[in-house]
Amino acid sequence: MLKFIARRLVLGLITLAILLVIITLIPNIAPGDPARKIAGGTATPERLAQVNESLGLRDPVSTQLTNLGQSVFTLDFGESFSVAAGQPVMDLVFTALGNSAKLVALSLIIMVPLAILGGLVAAYKKDTWIDRTIVNTGLAFSSIPDFVAGVFLLAFLAVPFEFFKVQANAPPGSSILVQIQHLLLPAIAVLMVYFGYIARITRAGTITSLDADYTRTAFMRGLTTREVFRKHVARNALQPTVAVLGTQLGYLFGGMVALEIVFQYPGLGNLIIRAVDRADYPVLRAGVLTVAIIYMLATLAADLLIAWMNPRARLNIGEDA
């Protein structure tokens, strides 16, 4: 098992290294002066100099890459240009990350059980109207942009019902229940966006598992449907769901940019957009990398969970991209 974790960690680090290369290359391959691109067309010469200085854009690409690598491992991305001028970038990132974590946690607590339940029911009732309703509703909502869902929720829940809050960020010092109340709408938006996807994956996994001979063996042994599900189907059927949730966690932290804007929530996505608006490249870069690291940790966790669920998965991890 230790060997497995080590191998998996090495793979994660390789991915991170490649990502660092890509992120370093992006400003350098853009046509024209990279500093001007980053600082914006109207930047003063002093500003340009500051950009060049702090990002080391005049250095050779290899030096830029080492510097960025160092930043990742020391968690020091320098100071913010403009979002909060002079403050260490990581302070901003950590505050935003904390906020994002709250939203993600609540969203998962609501979405995961519902989606898995939906998937299980759909699989068990395969090809009935219940199945079709679950699958089609999920399909209709999934891949609707998160902000569109958010705007609908604003109009149809926040405006008519006092209970739902327009602003996801509770006033400072609020109790946890009040905080949850404020976060409810974006969490529902996440539910709308993800329910169909997760339910569909769970459904497919469950159908495969229900069709398997070992499930038939269990039924033939005289176990009840409930026992068969609990002891034999669940652990096999939910493996794809766990894998997908692992990959989606990074998206939840960093991909809900527009949703955080709609509900004016100071999460990671919001920070990144403020950085874009104010041409604050260090903050932007650190934000993006943070999301990547979260993605890696989340997929690592998912892989470990799957390895625990399925002994066989321990063997062939990292065989395939």
């Binding site: 691109k37 990959t247 990074g250 996505g269 999301v291 890696m296």
Partner: peptide, 19 residues
Amino acid sequence: EAILSIPVILMAILVVFTF
């Protein structure tokens, strides 16, 4: 694998911002 580790929308923001 590396590119897929960042949400498409974030990567798009980064690239569009720079280019």
